[in-house]
Design a protein around this nucleic acid. Sequence first.
DNA 1: CAGCACTGAGAAAGCGTTTTCTCGCAGCCG
DNA 2: CGGCTGCGAGAAAACGCTTTCTCAGTGCTG
Lengths: 341, 341
Amino acid sequence: MARKSATGRIGIADVALKAGVSHATVSRVMNGNFTVDPEIAARVREAAVELKYQPNPVGRSLALGKTDTIGIVVPDLANPTFQAILRGLSRAAAEDGYRVLIADSFEVPSEEAILAGEARRRCDGLVLCAPRMTDAELEEIAPSLHPLVLINRTTAAAGVPSLVVDYGQGVQDLAEHLAGLGHTRLAFLAGPAGSASNRLRLEGLEAFRNRHPQVEVSMLDGGSDFDTGHEAVDAVLDSGATGILAFNDLVAMGLMSGLHERGVSVPGDISITGFDDIPFARYTTPTLTTAAVPISELGGQAWHQLRALIRKEDLETADTRYQPRLEIRASSGPSPADLAP
Amino acid sequence: MARKSATGRIGIADVALKAGVSHATVSRVMNGNFTVDPEIAARVREAAVELKYQPNPVGRSLALGKTDTIGIVVPDLANPTFQAILRGLSRAAAEDGYRVLIADSFEVPSEEAILAGEARRRCDGLVLCAPRMTDAELEEIAPSLHPLVLINRTTAAAGVPSLVVDYGQGVQDLAEHLAGLGHTRLAFLAGPAGSASNRLRLEGLEAFRNRHPQVEVSMLDGGSDFDTGHEAVDAVLDSGATGILAFNDLVAMGLMSGLHERGVSVPGDISITGFDDIPFARYTTPTLTTAAVPISELGGQAWHQLRALIRKEDLETADTRYQPRLEIRASSGPSPADLAP
DNA sequence: CAGCACTGAGAAAGCGTTTTCTCGCAGCCG
DNA sequence: CGGCTGCGAGAAAACGCTTTCTCAGTGCTG
């Protein structure tokens, strides 16, 4: 009876009718505007409760020009790193009453710009997570995406805060750790070719090489998941390296599993390090030496930066750089060469 | 110059102005309505491209009464199971041009109904993932959430498809496997008390007990994460059981790690099984015997059910039941009692 | 007691689309 | 040659809400 609206859902008009007031008054009451007679307000509230009225957020969004929603674009939702960022972002945003819309580009760089644009138009702001697109493209679309926060990527475009993990420093710390254990032949199991974080690691290793010319560091092709590590067993054994820097924890775990199948002892014969310190890293056998990045904190920080932009708070846009913390566990040990004689 | 709109963004009006036509015509062109003179259509399209016009989805949603977005409510985004479901759902929905909005209830049952309602109003449909709320509450709010799909939960409310994993059968299969290896003293490391999937496992074990009265099955308190398993080491050793059914793979991994620290051999002294077959399960040492749940397929199926409801396709609402598949790996072996003599 | 400020609520104008309604105009048939 | 059909495009309504504008009514002050 009260439902007259075309959509079948009860709207503000139904409440107004029942309470015998105008739409405007109902809106005022629902938004806690105090220029309403308490008695009328009570009548409106009663009608609202009775009809189980819930304001339509789409109408609200249109009128207010905001959606209370933010978007996040990730290259691959299956990656624990991005899952953790998403989790941190979602939690932090929820505390401020914001929801998050996700867009997975499935590692297809050409999709990113489109997804980002679509997501942005539905949201009040956007987080672009480790985008795979080119610098030029990123810089070009960045202005149209504002408010925008970047994770693990920087851009020359103005007003775009970046949160980046210092993978270069982290990989150097790991390499130093292995060198300190006497390893003189290291190998790096590289990540996805286009990845900016892989580039940072390579730069870090270059710096390490310059500092330690006596240590040999060979490069092996890889990827970012279990299987990559598992399939790299032969390449690793062929390399003759005794210390392996895996692109991340997943690759390290795949590699350890493969070496175990071959009867190679870790860290007896070969030492392995990961990167990220995903929760699983402390439960592998042996437990995994890695570089810990405060990853879900990153998600939270991303929200805080984005919130500042949305509120136009002019928080300084200085890029934030996260230092990984060396997490020494059981997968790394003295070089067998040191023990042999 | 072309931008007259209050929001600063260019709208349909700007395009209309530039092309010298009305809003209506622009809308018709943008939506591929062919009752427009090709020449005018071309002019409009040109103007749209020149102004980089992109229709505002909020206005569109209001007019069309749909958002091309679905929501998912999960109890804990940190749980790999829900991450996998989210991934499957997101991928499947994206193929049909839908986005997904996430809501994390952080295991607070009282939040679920509110989150679900809010999410639902912003979306065209909702997936409720293993809700922790009571049956009564679920049944009460279900109608207001339609189109709704449940995962790992059922309800008496009409028109709500359910996708449930048969945890009872899975745990029985695992128990049978251990019994077949000669184990006569088993222990179940239980999950969260309120969890429906834990209840199903308990029912399954009850059936198993009835079938195998000679096998002792003790119950140990637990949870659903690594730490739970790690902390359960003492309880497990005290129980004297030689076959441990962990609530899930995470718990199993925590337990294996703890036993390893104590020098207990797996499966030499104690056999362990997990549940879920998360990707990590095949990379632990020893690799984990578990019951595989086609979890991201579940997410995809959830979308297909939801899509049918949204399109009012009257796909039969018969609940779908997924049978876990026993995945025998290296963490389970013959009972030490069988070998001793 | 007249005029004024002030309060509170309705009317109406957005917000940016889509879609129905309406109408001018050209073409066609009788 | 007049009326009817049909096509194409503009005007306007609708979607559901917020907010400004407007105005009636009250109470206060000079």
